[in-house]
């Protein structure tokens, strides 16, 4: 078997029905060197303290459930290997979100914002019948938006975003990247319908281009680039609008 090492985990605990404020609790866990932080949390849950609550499912960095702060940085617990850390690891819920319980944060704000950018294909002519086959798309057209379709909604970028921390109205990196993903898709004709939200004050213009969102993304999505490209589009549209009246009826 692989080598074992005793690691102390300082885990933020908060049970709103009994605790006045969050406190750290320390657990000593014998870890295999090939473990991830999630394996250690599961060991705590099964063998030491069944009351610890956190979200997880796939253990392969694709479901996006187990985002949390590991030594102050937003990470997927299933992809944060203990071999990369010392003998003390601090685990906290994602920053910038309200804590529901222990390592579980409230995500309602994000799902509302996701919906607000209309993340679905919009066609002026409606969806064509299935019998007519696919919309043709070249690999080049696919590559234009592909990286922005890789977001797993893990919320690490929101946890890292200083602007979201200051201004909860900010739509934020993942949702803006998704809007950009649909705007860039050759099958989509909905950019104008998304403009009111994307180009609003709470949209791309609220971003101060710190770029932390892209740095922490576990899927190599570049939300910062999506937002900057969104600003360029928004500026172009602003000047174009001066030249022609905006279409009415589109929302």
């Amino acid at each position: 078997m692989t080598t074992e090492r005793m690691i102390e985990f300082e885990v933020l605990r908060y049970r709103p029905d009994t605790d006045h404020e969050p406190v750290f609790e320390t657990y000593r866990v014998p870890c295999n060197e090939d473990w991830v932080v999630l394996d250690a949390l599961n060991h705590i849950k099964d063998e030491i303290d069944g009351t610890l609550s956190y979200r997880w499912s796939c253990h392969m960095a694709v479901c996006g459930s187990c985002g949390m702060q590991v030594n102050g940085e937003p990470k997927l617990a299933c992809k944060a290997f203990v071999r990369d850390y010392g003998n003390r690891i601090r685990v906290e819920p994602l920053a910038t979100f309200p804590i529901e319980r222990d390592l579980v944060v409230d995500m309602d704000d994000f799902t509302d914002k996701l919906q607000s950018v209309k993340p679905w294909i919009i066609r002026d002519d409606g969806e064509k019948p299935a019998e007519d086959g696919e919309y043709r798309q070249s690999m080049g057209e696919l590559r234009k938006y592909r990286q922005f379709s890789m977001c797993i909604n893990c919320m690490l970028c929101y946890s890292a975003c200083p602007q979201y921390a200051l201004n909860p109205e900010f739509i934020g990196p993942a949702a803006l990247a998704l809007a950009h993903r649909y705007n860039l898709d050759s099958r989509d004709q909905g950019a104008e319908q998304r403009r009111d939200v994307v180009a609003s004050h709470a949209g791309v213009w609220d971003c101060t281009f710190v770029g932390q969102c892209s740095a922490v993304c576990p899927k190599d999505v570049d939300p910062a680039a999506a937002i900057q490209q969104g600003k360029i589009e928004s500026s172009k549209n602003f000047f174009l609008d001066l030249l022609k009246p905006k279409k009415t009826g589109a929302k």
């Binding site: 679905w120 294909i121 969806e127 064509k128 299935a130 019998e131 007519d132 086959g133 696919e134 919309y135 043709r136 798309q137 070249s138 690999m139 057209e141 696919l142 938006y145 592909r146 379709s149 649909y182 898709d185 099958r187 989509d188």
Partner: peptide, 23 residues
């Protein structure tokens, strides 16, 4: 099955493509 696959494509699934742009 083929009809359902086409609907998924119409809804935006980023399928890998052949050189002619088909799935």
């Amino acid at each position: 099955a083929p009809k359902e696959m086409m609907r998924l494509e119409h809804w935006g699934c980023p399928f890998s493509r052949d050189p002619d742009g088909r799935i």
